[in-house]
Computed example of a mutant assay.
Amino acid sequence: MSSSNSAIASAPSSSAPNPTWVEKLTGCGWLGIPGTAGDLLASRPENATQITVPSLAPREDGTGPFTFGKKMRPKLSGWAQKVISDISARPKPPPQPACSP
């Protein structure tokens, strides 16, 4: 396992933001941010901080990490939206107990 994957695999399950994990991801080159980890975690949606994942960015020759073209992108997007909104993927409410008269 590479160092970038080990940082992700051993991340704590806590939902509280932890700047040390962001610093580890930026330090190993997996994530690029213009400021500090604290700046990223303090940013609000109204003034969001741009992040970059270098392995997913297009290369200097214009090629990217994916082999599909412009025509396939809308199909993938539609497929992803269908999968997320699929009724069977949502948790079903527990059955209501039957009332006996």
Rank of each mutant, 00 (worst) to 15 (best):
M1L: 05
S3P: 09
S3T: 13
S4H: 12
S4M: 11
S4F: 12
N5R: 08
N5Q: 15
S6C: 03
S6E: 14
S6G: 04
A7Q: 05
I8K: 05
A9M: 13
A11P: 00
A11W: 11
P12M: 10
S13T: 15
S13V: 11
S14T: 15
S14F: 13
A16C: 13
A16R: 14
P17L: 15
P17A: 13
P19R: 07
P19N: 05
P19Y: 11
T20A: 15
V22P: 02
V22A: 11
V22L: 11
E23Q: 13
K24S: 01
L25P: 07
L25S: 09
L25R: 05
L25T: 05
T26S: 08
T26E: 02
T26A: 14
T26W: 03
G27W: 04
G27L: 07
G27C: 00
C28R: 05
W30P: 02
L31V: 10
G32H: 10
I33C: 13
P34C: 06
T36P: 13
T36K: 10
A37G: 13
A37Q: 10
D39I: 10
D39K: 14
L40P: 02
L41P: 07
A42N: 14
S43C: 15
S43F: 03
P45K: 14
P45Q: 13
E46I: 03
E46Q: 14
N47W: 07
N47Q: 15
A48C: 08
A48S: 12
A48V: 05
A48H: 00
T49S: 05
T49E: 09
Q50N: 12
Q50P: 11
I51K: 07
T52D: 08
T52Q: 08
V53H: 09
S55Y: 02
L56W: 02
L56H: 03
A57V: 02
R59C: 01
E60L: 01
D61Y: 01
D61E: 01
D61G: 05
G62C: 02
G62F: 03
G64L: 00
P65A: 14
F68N: 06
G69P: 00
G69N: 11
K70D: 04
K71I: 00
K71Q: 13
K71F: 03
M72C: 03
M72I: 04
R73M: 06
R73F: 04
R73W: 08
R73T: 06
P74D: 04
P74H: 06
K75W: 09
K75D: 12
L76K: 05
G78L: 07
G78D: 10
W79K: 06
W79T: 06
W79I: 04
A80I: 11
A80R: 10
Q81T: 10
K82E: 14
K82S: 06
V83Y: 00
V83H: 06
V83K: 07
I84H: 02
I84N: 09
S85C: 09
D86K: 01
D86N: 06
I87A: 01
I87V: 09
I87P: 01
I87G: 05
S88N: 04
S88G: 01
S88L: 08
R90L: 04
R90I: 00
P91D: 06
K92P: 03
P93H: 00
P93W: 01
P95H: 01
P95N: 01
P97K: 08
P97S: 12
A98G: 11
A98R: 12
C99W: 09
C99Y: 11
S100D: 14
P101L: 14
P101F: 09
